[in-house]
Design a protein around this nucleic acid. Structure first.
Lengths: 154, 154
DNA sequence: TTTCTAGTTTAGAATTGTTTTAAACTATTG
DNA sequence: CAATAGTTTAAAACAATTCTAAACTAGAAA
């Protein structure tokens, strides 16, 4: 999967929490952002955050839940993804019209977008050097900078 | 509109072509990319390229056409925008899920995305310095780099 | 010019991804 | 345990876009 930088972190996280007390991490995260730990949210949090860095769509997550025999509606998946995003547990990355991924990596970083596969690959923030940004238009403040490097498979 | 660099080009283009021979420029562009100059394509090209740099949605363009009493269906607007994009006459900029703009400026440049207004503002390519890009994943070649600076109105 | 044909346009239906609704359910508080 | 505020759900609604198949048109050939 050629994703060397992130793999180390992934292993660390999953070994520290996931393998032994499977719900401790999910519960902690929900507590931290003040969302009631319901069965559905716990299950989705576990699917999202126990698997290392992921870029998934709402449909993807709904599919994963079904596979894990978690009963949750698609509407709840959408609600939950947005709540997680609002709370800073997730980031949304938009790559194409009608194509939006939720990214479990909320640290500053960038992306390769691989076409036509439609796959996202993380770029560590320090492997892009971004100097001399223009000042924002009058009356606005900078929120964040997204760098998307679009690449194509030969 | 605080868009100084591009304004000059805009004026130049519109004064050189648009005002006197209104269809010459549109016709030339269609010829160059090998698209048959139909009534609808000519009209849309004129609306798109005679107005200087623009960021518009399919619905926007359809509305502009109606206002200009050009009879064209929404399906044709979508077809035409995609053909223009494939031919390199337009660029597509995706900023949010279900929100995609077509940009008449096809030169390398970047964007401010102003929220919640949902407005795009061009950033000249040379006012962003982008050094040290990572190499693309194996089996892929770099297509282009999009920098979107997300800003919010206070 | 007329005829032919491939390319184009169209209205409307279909599809996709997402949001809304209103009723049923559930986690927490007292 | 009861009250209640927050949550979940199926289903409908919605928005943006694409598809379909029939009607139309630009350009080439006769």
């Amino acid at each position: 999967m050629s994703d060397n930088q992130t793999d180390k972190t992934v292993e660390m996280v999953s070994e520290t929490h996931a393998s032994k007390r499977p719900y401790a991490d999910a519960l902690l995260r929900l507590k931290q952002v003040g969302l009631r730990p319901t069965r559905q949210r716990m299950a989705l949090a576990k699917l999202l955050f126990d698997g290392g860095d992921q870029h998934i769509t709402a449909e993807d997550l709904h599919g994963m839940a079904r596979k894990a025999t978690v009963k949750v509606s698609l509407a709840t998946v959408y609600n939950t993804l947005h709540q997680f995003k609002e709370s800073g547990l997730l980031r949304e990355v938009v790559v194409g019209p009608g194509r939006s991924y939720f990214d479990t990596n909320t640290h500053a970083h960038h992306h390769f977008y691989v076409e036509p596969a439609g796959e996202l690959v993380d770029i560590p923030v320090d492997s892009v050097e971004l100097s001399r940004l223009p000042s924002p238009p009058d009356g606005t403040v900078m929120d964040r900078v997204d760098v998307i490097i679009r690449v194509t498979q030969a």
